[in-house]
């Protein structure tokens, strides 16, 4: 249907194919919201696949025409967002020795494991690496690196979890960014963070429908639970979270380069907390049945937790925002 970017055609209008245009951004965010409403795990996988294709196009790397869905992407280093150092580097602040050392370590795939959540059959992954004081990229074939299958993850049941480690003698070539590497990395982070929020917003919409529908039929104390203030509060929390997400995404519905990454990262901290809280409230509306896998609302909670933990998570995002505003370590 053209929703996913499966070719190198620069005229395509699928997911993350035209983020430079406002319409392309809105289309991608709304698509991810729709996907997320159905299945956040699948939506996440498609989001990262589309990002991989976007980065490949920017790097002028050929897409794998035989298995376009088998290429994915990890947009960050091995943990968090490199405290304040990455943001300082992205904003062009003069990097201290400590910043350079931290970025080199953050993107060091040889000494640290990189966590990957992807379809079980993934074949290659695009990763940022630190090379000659800048961020370059590597496309790694699965067979070329040490890949450890992890036990079942917290959420994204449709995907599998892996630990990746670069072997001592890695053959994967480093690909320099044509043009400004800072600009490309900034764009990738923005798309990734916005995509995660959009998927979470869609999943929340689904949870809200489930909770509202349940509250309209389930009785307690002789009346529908929707008539109890305790449940009304839960439903209002969900509505409030949905509005926050809508407002946040609405404010970022611009051409990609008009969006400020620091603002996206700051917003993400707040948005993901509310998304998780709302998913918890949706489980709580259902009571005991909400805890059972048959229903599916608990999966939305687990997936919201997973979305919160991606792209460096929200703990280190506070340091990132501080760095974006000029703070040093």
């Amino acid at each position: 249907m053209g929703l996913l970017s499966l070719s190198a055609d620069p005229e395509g209008y699928g997911l993350w194919e035209q983020p430079a245009e406002k319409a392309g951004m809105l289309l991608s965010l709304r698509m991810l919201g729709q996907f997320g409403a159905v299945n956040a795990g699948v939506a996440f996988a498609w989001h990262r696949i589309a990002l991989a294709a976007y980065v490949a196009r920017q790097l002028r790397l050929p897409l794998n025409a035989d298995a376009p869905l088998a290429a994915t992407l990890v947009p960050t280093g091995h943990l968090g967002l490199a405290r304040t150092s990455l943001a300082r580097w992205l904003t062009g602040q003069p990097p201290s020795d400590e910043d350079s050392a931290l970025l080199a370590d953050w993107l060091n795939r040889r000494e640290h494991d990189t966590v990957l959540y992807a379809p079980a059959a993934w074949e290659s992954v695009l990763l940022p690496v630190w090379d000659q004081h800048t961020i370059a990229w590597r496309r790694v074939n699965r067979s070329d690196w040490q890949v450890t299958n992890c036990a079942r993850a917290h959420g994204f049941d449709e995907l599998a979890a892996f630990r990746l480690r670069e072997p001592p003698a890695s053959a994967a070539p480093i690909v320099s960014v044509p043009g400004d590497p800072r600009a490309l990395f900034t764009r990738v982070l923005k798309m990734d963070m916005l995509g995660l929020m959009a998927i979470g917003g869609g999943a929340l919409a689904r949870a809200q429908t489930m909770a509202t529908d349940y509250a309209a039929v389930r009785r307690q104390g002789g009346k529908l639970i929707a008539a109890h203030a305790a449940v009304q509060q839960l439903l209002t929390d969900i509505e409030s979270a949905r509005l926050r997400v809508d407002q946040a995404l609405g404010s970022f519905g611009l051409a990609l380069d008009e969006v400020d990454l620091g603002a996206v990262a700051a917003s993400r901290i707040d948005v993901h907390k509310h998304l998780c809280h709302a998913a918890n409230q949706a489980v709580q509306v259902h009571g005991g049945i909400g805890y059972m896998r048959d229903l599916g609302v608990e999966k939305i909670l687990r997936d919201q937790n997973m979305l919160r933990l991606q792209a460096g998570g929200i703990h280190d995002a506070r340091q990132f925002v501080a760095g974006w505003k000029g703070a040093s370590a």
Binding site: L79, F156, N280, L301, G313, I314
Partner: peptide, 25 residues
């Protein structure tokens, strides 16, 4: 705890994701 571990926090081997699922009940 999960926030501290970021994307490692979703891995079963880190234990906290299981703790979350258990606590939720």
């Amino acid at each position: 705890a999960m926030d501290l571990m970021a994307d490692h926090g979703g891995l079963h081997e880190q234990r906290v994701e299981k703790i979350f699922r258990d606590i939720r009940l």
